[in-house]
Amino acid sequence: MSEIEQLMNFAQQLSTHAREITLPHFRSGIHSNTKADDSPVTIADRDCEAAMRTLIADTYPTHGVVGEEYGDDSANCSDVWVLDPIDGTRSFITGSRQYCTLIAFVRDGIAQIGLIDMPAENECWLACDVSDKQSVTLNGKPCVTSTCHKLSESSLVTTTLGVADNACEAAAKRLCRSAGQMRLGGDASAYGCVASGYADIAVDYKMACHDYLPLVPIVRAAGGVISDWQGETLQLSSTHRTEVLASATIDLHQQALSTLNMQK
């Protein structure tokens, strides 16, 4: 077994471990607290990330970790695991089955492995995006993006509207109006749906690296394009938040970028 296959297997071990922690809390009336950034957090978020960090430390002691709940422990590490124990905590505490666990393996700043696990739906996207091995599956079955090339014919998914600054909000709404169909909700699973060809575009703003890096290999390995709203590569940063756009095809991505950056 190659090194990248071993790392992919380990990512699945992490997600299985995470399921065992989050699922018993789901729809249990779990209490949430509010963090400094006004986002909710529960004991399930914290226990899940702590358990994954322990497993990483035991298995790969030289690897760094960046996580949503316990921060950046990746100084001077070329190999880094990026963790979001519960992406969509609002979904989790309100009983929505859309919540996810997100995991990425990053080498020298480049996301090579990405995983989106939806415990309540029993669905898992797993991808590898390296030069000699590019693959993405949903529950073991290969994924490929749609062939949509026209924004006006596209189906678009965005997690939420109404919480960005005025310019960002206006751009997001402009893109939503330009798409053929638009749906709210989905969190990280929207990007899995783009990879699987169910949706054509996913767009969000104010995303941290633990939100977006696990998505990058999944979209790219399925044949799609993912970047920030300026078309720049998404990179590892434990402090910077950015806007994210994923599209099924390069033509569609360019049209979406042009719409987002249109001067009004």
Results as ranks from 00 to 15, higher is better:
residue 36 A to L: 03
residue 243 E to A: 14
residue 178 S to E: 11
residue 122 N to F: 02
residue 151 L to W: 08
residue 202 A to N: 06
residue 198 Y to F: 06
residue 217 P to W: 03
residue 114 G to K: 08
residue 243 E to I: 09
residue 223 G to V: 09
residue 234 L to M: 02
residue 157 V to H: 00
residue 141 K to D: 01
residue 63 H to I: 12
residue 68 E to L: 03
residue 52 M to W: 01
residue 30 I to W: 04
residue 21 I to A: 05
residue 240 H to L: 13
residue 187 D to I: 04
residue 44 A to C: 02
residue 16 T to E: 09
residue 8 M to H: 02
residue 24 P to S: 04
residue 27 R to E: 14
residue 236 L to A: 01
residue 35 K to P: 08
residue 239 T to V: 08
residue 217 P to F: 07
residue 132 D to K: 10
residue 78 S to L: 05
residue 8 M to G: 04
residue 54 T to V: 11
residue 107 R to K: 14
residue 128 C to T: 07
residue 213 L to H: 02
residue 68 E to H: 08
residue 214 P to C: 06
residue 206 K to Q: 10
residue 65 V to K: 04
residue 126 L to R: 07
residue 60 Y to H: 12
residue 62 T to A: 15
residue 161 L to N: 13
residue 38 D to S: 07
residue 42 T to I: 11
residue 73 D to R: 13
residue 15 S to V: 04
residue 144 V to W: 06
residue 38 D to N: 04
residue 121 E to D: 11
residue 87 D to M: 06
residue 63 H to M: 12
residue 99 Y to P: 05
residue 189 S to G: 09
residue 115 L to H: 08
residue 259 T to M: 15
residue 141 K to T: 07
residue 159 T to V: 11
residue 103 I to T: 00
residue 188 A to T: 05
residue 119 P to I: 11
residue 113 I to R: 00
residue 194 V to R: 04
residue 90 R to L: 10
residue 260 L to G: 11
residue 38 D to H: 05
residue 50 A to E: 15
residue 187 D to A: 14
residue 190 A to R: 00
residue 8 M to D: 02
residue 264 K to W: 11
residue 216 V to Y: 02
residue 76 N to Y: 06
residue 41 V to Y: 10
residue 144 V to E: 00
residue 188 A to P: 00
residue 201 I to G: 02
residue 93 I to T: 09
residue 79 D to E: 14
residue 73 D to L: 14
residue 132 D to G: 09
residue 163 V to W: 01
residue 82 V to E: 05
residue 128 C to R: 00
residue 215 L to H: 02
residue 226 I to A: 03
residue 69 E to G: 00
residue 228 D to Q: 13
residue 111 A to S: 13
residue 203 V to I: 10
residue 248 A to D: 03
residue 39 S to W: 02
residue 26 F to A: 02
residue 94 T to A: 07
residue 19 R to V: 03
residue 92 F to G: 04
residue 81 W to M: 09
residue 64 G to W: 07
residue 109 G to P: 03
residue 129 D to T: 00
residue 181 Q to T: 13
residue 45 D to K: 12
residue 105 F to H: 15
residue 225 V to Q: 12
residue 79 D to W: 09
residue 214 P to D: 05
residue 17 H to L: 15
residue 203 V to D: 06
residue 34 T to M: 04
residue 225 V to C: 14
residue 259 T to C: 15
residue 261 N to V: 15
residue 69 E to C: 05
residue 6 Q to D: 10
residue 188 A to Y: 00
residue 103 I to N: 03
residue 173 K to Q: 14
residue 230 Q to M: 09
residue 119 P to S: 09
residue 160 T to E: 15
residue 57 A to N: 14
residue 220 R to C: 07
residue 202 A to R: 04
residue 196 S to R: 08
residue 194 V to D: 08
residue 133 K to N: 12
residue 107 R to Y: 08
residue 204 D to S: 15
residue 234 L to H: 07
